[in-house]
Every structure is written in structure tokens, then in C-alpha cells.
């Protein structure tokens, strides 16, 4: 239902052109969940915002970027071609693709009630007004596990707890009836116990509603719980993607291996943690060649620093971008 090809995003900034997303491709089938994982600054959120055309005016999409989405009526839409003021884009936002954000506090406007903001979405995408819209909003609040929704609906965001706000945000996104939900680090700002509840909820809702989901997180552990497929991003490119189990069990890219090694594990308390060495470079100082080579322990001299690795199909739906798999080793 969604396929993204060669997505590149560039920003004009004072110090020149910055490319936070370069040549990203992935596809998503109906009802499936794709996890996007990477450190902060790896371009996950920019990718998500590009899908909704929510990037600021200083951003431009690369000439070869294609974002193809098949809507409820079965019609294919080229998202990259929609004009910013088009009705089709507004129908897409919310109605076809819903989005929830990391900060549940900041994503609600503080001066309107929860109900006001939910019924607004319902009126826009379902054509329901007044009492009918309100009834649906209450139903959605109940569905996301908010107790006494008839009361909560008239409350202001600041009177709710963090977990409750994120539930309300999910209700808001779902009430417009989207077929795809983009969740941008939805649990990062929450307490660990609440995090688990919200994750559970999202998984359950996804099953009920048959929605597809793009789940963005920096936490591989969280991704492993919700996603069937995962794409690992580093400095704006997807370095490796594939089915979540296979990828976690046999990571092909050194960066993925590093990420997995860096997860603290309860069963190995005595050992030291193994962080990925070095720091993520700023997108304005992108290394040439493979973006990961300055931090890569297995970098091949003379190759990784000069040539950008092309995607290699490893079979089983797995794709990796690394010279270790391109056969360059023999050349060196």
C-alpha cells in the first residue's frame, strides 16, 4: 500500500545544504508494521514528516524521490506530487495516514478540550457533526482505555497525566479512521510501566482495526515487540532492513551489530556495556563513502571511505548496504 523509493530530503540552512535523508527506499503492506530504528539525528522523523508533507519550507525533496500510496478507494497517489494546499493532501493527512508524536503534552493545543480537538478530526474526515461526532469521540477514548471518557472528553490536556494524554492522542489519530498510522517515538517520553501499557494498546488496536503502522523508535527492544519488519537508519540512509527476527538474530551490518550489543541486558549484568564507539556526525559534516565508516571497526581501507555502498539483497527480504557484503573485500 505504501512504497517509498529513493527518498532524499535536503534543507537549506545558513551553512549550506544539509541532507538529513538520502536515498531511502522501503515498502509497507496492508496491516503490517515497519519499525524505523536509529540514533537521534538519523533522519527517522524527517522521513515520517516527508510522508505527510509536513516538512518546513526550507526543505526540498530530491528529484528522484517517489512516495506511492494506495488509498481506501484503491487509487494510487504520488504523495511527492501533491500541491501543499491540495484537498487530496488534506484528505491524506489524518484520513488516510494518521500520526502521533513523541511529546503527548505538546501535540495537543492547551487551550481547547481534548473533545474539541478529536471532534475536529472526526468532522474533517468522517463528516460527522455535533452529537454524533461527540459520541464517536467518546467511543474512541473508551477504546484506548481511558476510564470515564464522557468526563475526560471535556477536560483540557494539562489536566491529564502523560500516559493518558498519549492515549488521547492515539484516540485522536484513530478517530479519523486512517489506514496507516505513523508513530514517531510514541512511548519515549513516558514512564517505563506506562510505556508497556501503551505499546500493548497500540498492538491490540492495530489488530482490531487492520491498520498498517510505521513505528519509529531509537529502541530496538521496543521495535522488536511491535514490528514485523525493521529498517535501521544511520545518517539518513537505511543501512539494513528485513524481517525483525532474522535481523536481530543475524545482523548483517556492523552498525546493527553495534546497536544490538549496546542494549543493556538483565542476564549479563556483570559485563560492561558495549556502546557504538564515536559520535554520530552532524548531517552537515556527512562523511564521504559509507556514512558509517569513521565509526566502523571493520571498515575496509580505501573502499568504505570513498565509495557509497549499494543495497545488496541477502534473500529472505533482507537488504543491507555495506561493502562487507558487496564483494569488495576480494578487490581489496
Amino acid at each position: 500500500m505504501l512504497s517509498v523509493e529513493n527518498l532524499s530530503v535536503t534543507f537549506r540552512t545558513d551553512e549550506g545544504i544539509v541532507t538529513p535523508v538520502a536515498d531511502v527506499s522501503f515498502a509497507l503492506a496492508e496491516g503490517r508494521t515497519l519499525g524505523l530504528v536509529g540514533e537521534s539525528g538519523s533522519g527517522k522523523s524527517v522521513t515520517a514528516k516527508a510522508l505527510m508533507r509536513l516538512l518546513p519550507g526550507t526543505a526540498t525533496l530530491g528529484a528522484h524521490s517517489r512516495m506511492r500510496y494506495v488509498d481506501k478507494a484503491g487509487q494510487a497517489i504520488g504523495i511527492e506530487r501533491l500541491s501543499p494546499r491540495a484537498r487530496a493532501l488534506r484528505r491524506l493527512r489524518g484520513g488516510e495516514i494518521g500520526m502521533i508524536f513523541q511529546e503527548p503534552m505538546a501535540s495537543f493545543s492547551p487551550v481547547y478540550t481534548i473533545g474539541n480537538q478529536i471532534t475536529e478530526a472526526i468532522a474533517l474526515h468522517r463528516g460527522l457533526k455535533g452529537r454524533a461526532a461527540r459520541a464517536l469521540a467518546i467511543e474512541m477514548l473508551a477504546k484506548v482505555g481511558i476510564a470515564s471518557p464522557e468526563r475526560r472528553i471535556d477536560q483540557y490536556p494539562h489536566t491529564l497525566s502523560g500516559g493518558m494524554r498519549q492515549r488521547a492522542m492515539i484516540a485522536l489519530a484513530l478517530s479519523a479512521g486512517p489506514r496507516l498510522l505513523i508513530a514517531d517515538e510514541p512511548t519515549t517520553a513516558l514512564d517505563v510501566t506506562i510505556q508497556a501499557q501503551v505499546l500493548d494498546l497500540m498492538r491490540g488496536l492495530q489488530c482490531d482495526l487492520g491498520m498498517a503502522m510505521i513505528f519509529i523508535s531509537h529502541d530496538l527492544g521496543v521495535i522488536a515487540q511491535v514490528a514485523q519488519e525493521v529498517a535501521v537508519m544511520y545518517l539518513g540512509t537505511i543501512v539494513e532492513r528485513g524481517p525483525v527476527r532474522a535481523l536481530l538474530q543475524a545482523p548483517a551490518h556492523p552498525y546493527t551489530r553495534g546497536l544490538i550489543a549496546a542494549i543493556p541486558r538483565l542476564d549479563r549484568l556483570e559485563g560492561r556495556l558495549h556502546p557504538v564507539p564515536g559520535e554520530i556526525p552532524s548531517p552537515s559534516a556527512r562523511p564521504a563513502g559509507c556514512p558509517f565508516h569513521p565509526r566502523c571497526a571493520e571498515a575496509l581501507a580505501g573502499i568504505c571511505a570513498t565509495r557509497v555502498p549499494e543495497p545488496v539483497d541477502l534473500g529472505g527480504g533482507r537488504v543491507v548496504r555495506c561493502h562487507l557484503h558487496t564483494g569488495e573485500r576480494s578487490v581489496a
Partner: peptide, 14 residues
């Protein structure tokens, strides 16, 4: 603010 982006993401006319 995020609340503005969030509102835009639900398809509100500009």
C-alpha cells in the same frame, strides 16, 4: 509548536 504540526497532520485547512 508541535501542536500546530499535529493539527496540520490531521488535515486541517491551513
Amino acid at each position: 509548536k508541535l501542536s500546530v504540526i499535529a493539527a496540520r497532520a490531521r488535515g486541517l485547512p491551513e
